[in-house]
Design a protein around this nucleic acid. Sequence first.
DNA 1: TAAATAGGTTTATATTATAAACCATTTTAT
DNA 2: ATAAAATGGTTTATAATATAAACCTATTTA
Lengths: 95, 95
Amino acid sequence: MSPFSPLDPLLHSQLRLAVMSLLIGVDEAEFTFLKEQTQSTAGNLSVQLDKLEKAGYIEITKSFRGKRPLTTCKITQKGVTAFESYVENLKKYIE
Amino acid sequence: MSPFSPLDPLLHSQLRLAVMSLLIGVDEAEFTFLKEQTQSTAGNLSVQLDKLEKAGYIEITKSFRGKRPLTTCKITQKGVTAFESYVENLKKYIE
DNA sequence: TAAATAGGTTTATATTATAAACCATTTTAT
DNA sequence: ATAAAATGGTTTATAATATAAACCTATTTA
């Protein structure tokens, strides 16, 4: 038996992992907040958020604040579970 | 300031991380041992070992055991340091 | 002596990450 | 009033990566 469990490829990505890490600690977060916290480009962030949403790990809500578009992200229960089990698996690699 | 340090892309790979994780606990390890422990294909393992060697994270020694080729791997001090700081950085993502 | 096994490497392909270019709108400066 | 810059993103193209498939050389077994 291998001592290593497979790591969810969707979470084993620096930017997506950082996003999930941020979202797990808050109720919800805006696109611009995620962008500045992760130091990512908007394009990269947009793509990665899409993937997380398609996987059902986050929900993305589009609205307006005043006249400006506003993108808000929230982790789902499925996302929380996936994140937690990713972390459990990862620990076997780094202990 | 971003709360996330960049993760060494060489180590942020499931197979290479597993290899480093194994090597850090032993004096040296054979190709076939790494292959079975990581459940990887020989081709994939060969490629990833090459990258680790080129980065100076491991040393690869080729010899024979009896008449058969034998590939042995050993982590370097540079590799130990890189692994440790990768783990430190990673913790910020998963705490 | 043919077939299977060992111990790999090389090459091709699919996936991923990333940056660059773009778009619509709003705000600021002239 | 109009041009220029900023906001808040998306889409597309490219580069990097991971992975598997094919291959190679030699050895052992049937």
